[in-house]
Nucleic acid binder design. Structure first.
Lengths: 234, 234
DNA sequence: ACCTGAACACCGTTCAAGT
DNA sequence: ACCTGAACACCGTTCAAGT
């Protein structure tokens, strides 16, 4: 069986020259994400993009002015994936929790892409949807105006920072060839253990490693603080 | 007046060949941090290190096996700077807040270095001190064993992720030559504003940009959650 | 865990030339 | 916002040779 669906995204290599308009921003972004997902943090190069798309490496410059710009487009694509199928839930807290877990899992599924993009403001078409979705939940909770934006900033920045750092750790561990769960382990063997009594006393516990459990606790802490700070009207 | 203090860290360039043992891990790490602090996120190269230290670029390989290893050493150096002069305060909450603000300010002062290192577990000599300091405060609050480590993980991971993302945004803004405070501004001009009612209603508020105020709110949310979850004994 | 210089296989970006 | 190939100024890393 031929994979017919693959044809439009992966042009035949044997073709000598690509027709005009074969490449698009969308095709390049999808190829970039595919390349980053292979696991090598530094795999996204113009040469690799050219190979993936059966095009000359420099053809990308017709569509993006730099690698940085391609990465920012990947950032918006990750937001698109993360929001896919999202609908507000009955309670504003459930909505915010759902959005947080979506970001976490999207970043965990695409660690190298997330590592290079989680700190970017894309100002792209999907980012604006995410901002609107979070502000909607914050409004439903009872905040308005500047205070609503402040709550939005605290929440979304928290989620992106925590999910992004986790992705960076995953990507770095993969690059180091390490067991991809082991980066959470902090096993210290100081020369003078008596200088670090608390570290020594918790040597075994510091080997525990459930990133999502920690993330979940951090999200609940923020949601509880928001609930406690709800404006009186609600 | 000659800057005598500079001599040991910056060898004379005219010297043809460096004597054996001139280079040390410490000198290389200090040079690396100086280079990163110049503002260019990608400035840390072996060539640049060689120039900074008056040595051959490849001499670094006698002391570190890769650029990645140098960056991990820079990560530990940032922790050293951050802990400099730290003493536990009377209340465990004040201690944790102090440690959080130290990390934030250190990362803000060295954005490019922080961007490349905030997600690393260094297992180095200063990281173990930081872990011990946080565990000490968590113990004083009343936690022990596995639960103490979980509180430590929630808190330190929160602080590193938030301070690290801020540093990455600062570094990226500097690289883009942008006004270094403007990266916090999210000004959307969607084609169909009616599709994003909450974004449209908060157009002006989304220009507000005080990263530290947001960080402070996030830290207080976590401290409040910890206080609420204190074990009964305390 | 010594320092240097040559060498190798890359990499981002520019630009003149091809369709 | 067309696609290609040559060219330029880098970059990380290896390794034989120098002190």
């Amino acid at each position: 069986m031929e994979e017919l669906a693959e044809a439009p995204t992966r042009p035949h290599r044997k073709q000598k020259r690509l027709g005009r308009g074969t490449l698009t921003k969308e095709l390049i972004v999808e190829a970039a994400l595919r390349i980053l997902d292979e696991g090598n943090v530094n795999a996204l190069t113009f040469a690799r993009l050219g190979k993936e798309l059966g095009a000359s490496p420099t053809a990308m410059y017709r569509h993006f002015s730099s690698r940085d710009e391609i990465e920012t487009a990947v950032a918006d694509e990750l937001i698109r994936i993360s929001l896919d199928g999202y609908e507000p839930l009955e309670s504003w807290m459930d909505s915010l929790r759902d959005l947080a877990y979506r970001a976490w899992h999207t970043f965990s599924d695409h660690p190298a892409a997330a590592m290079h993009t989680f700190y970017r403001v894309t100002l792209g078409p999907h980012e604006v949807r995410a901002v609107d979705a979070i502000l909607e939940a914050v409004h439903r909770a009872g905040w308005q105006g500047r205070e609503a934006v402040f709550q939005y900033q605290m929440y979304s920045n928290l989620v992106l920072a925590l999910s992004g750092r986790n992705a960076a750790m995953l990507a770095a561990a993969a690059a180091a060839g390490a067991d991809s769960g082991n980066f959470w382990v902090q096993e210290y063997r100081p020369a003078r253990p008596q200088d670090f009594p608390y570290v020594s006393a918790h040597h075994d516990e510091l080997r525990i490693k459930d990133g999502f459990e920690v993330f979940s606790g951090q999200v609940e802490a923020m949601l509880a603080a928001m609930k406690a700070a709800l404006p009186a009207a609600s």
